[in-house]
Amino acid sequence: MDVPVSYYVVLSGIVFSIGLVGVLIRRNIIIILLSVELMLNATNINFVAFSSYLGNLSGQVFVFFALTVAAAEVAVGLAIIIALYRHSESINIDDFRLLKW
């Protein structure tokens, strides 16, 4: 393989950091969930890169499971967003401080 595996690790590090910054600085809950998707994709890139580098297919199977969990997370997360919107007509993260003290 021509491209060294560290390139893939750095790429996934960049994407993961962007996702983390997105979670921290955005106020729209939908964008926060999209940023979580970015982080999941960063780990998937890592899994597939190492799987290909080692010639072991287990990494790809784990990407499959990560995809399943991502789908479940999106379904529940969007359901929570809809319930919150019904509750207070807003999806701004600053409006929900029920559990803060």
Binding site: V9, I14, F16, S17, V21, L24, I25, R26, R27, I91
Partner: peptide, 27 residues
């Protein structure tokens, strides 16, 4: 959801960016 336009970034923009850069540098 029929969203209204809202203010763009959270007030902790600088802290968030700094934290992301630190994490990336560490990686």
């Amino acid at each position: 959801l029929n969203l209204k336009r809202e203010e763009h970034f959270h007030s902790q923009l600088i802290v968030g960016l700094f934290l992301g850069c630190v994490l990336f540098a560490e990686a």
